[in-house]
Design a protein around this nucleic acid. Structure first.
Lengths: 139, 139
DNA sequence: TTACCTGCAAAGAGTTTGCAGGTAG
DNA sequence: CTACCTGCAAACTCTTTGCAGGTAA
């Protein structure tokens, strides 16, 4: 429970009370070195014991709203979240349903197109789909 | 019914018989100059009269499988399809739930990162989210 | 104590499927 | 005539919501 205070802080600043279920969720999401990509279902499996879906959904959505989590655009019907909220992009392995961060120095756009009239660019998301080397390249 | 033959051809090569419902769907999707972006729900609304959801889903999925339609990655829970199957990218206006094609000459990546070990790049998808100029920039 | 939180189960939204009657080849 | 197709409604999956009992402040 090393990061307990940060967890409480995150919850408070998301407008949530620090309950033991929510602290357990924080531990899973934020007590790790690596970026964590997950669906609610996976989070449920990891938390397992006794945290209800309702609590998972409401906590995750509060974190998303306050900027502690980011949602990723995918074709998948399940929603993916990312604990890395910095501007960055992803590889997506459809076979494994796994996301992998792309380090920002490894990718860059050289022409950002102009937004349509009256619109402003909010965000750029690049998704690179990958497959195993030994498989057919185009589905 | 100018493109009738092409519609039949598309259906045949997707393993489907050309029935009048499916020809009506083809007309909506392919008898147009502009790229068409749609959800099944929108297609249903346009077709209206008498085409069932089952027929819409099975026809659209067959076209996707045979490469006449492309599915777009979005956070949206509804699936978006695109009649432009060439490699290209999109603006997405979340307020209107509208996709707009980006012309390929207006965008380019200068460093494509190396795929993770044992993987090969299949596809790159860039999504640029836009909002009205007079609104808050970050959600 | 009071407002907020929890788990459960039911309701929603989008998509998929099973089936009995209908149609293309 | 046969295999495939259609519309309908039921089933499924993921997500959201209502509620009655429980907990943080």
């Amino acid at each position: 429970m090393r990061h307990y205070k940060f967890h409480k802080e995150r919850l408070r600043s998301s407008g949530l009370r620090p309950t033991k279920q929510r602290l357990a969720i924080c531990k899973i999401l934020f007590d790790r070195k690596e970026t964590f990509h997950f669906t609610i279902e996976e989070l449920k499996k990891i938390a397992e014991k006794n945290i209800s879906l309702a609590t998972l959904y409401n906590t995750v959505h509060a974190f998303k709203k306050s900027g502690y989590l980011k949602e990723i655009s995918l074709k998948n019907k399940k929603t993916f979240f990312d604990t890395n909220t910095k501007n960055h992009h992803h590889f997506y392995d459809e076979e494994l349903s796994k996301l992998i961060d792309i380090k920002n120095e490894n990718i860059s756009l050289n022409n950002l197109p102009e937004a349509p009239y009256g619109k402003k660019i909010k965000d750029v998301e690049i998704l690179i789909r990958v497959a195993n080397n030994n498989q057919k390249q185009k589905k």
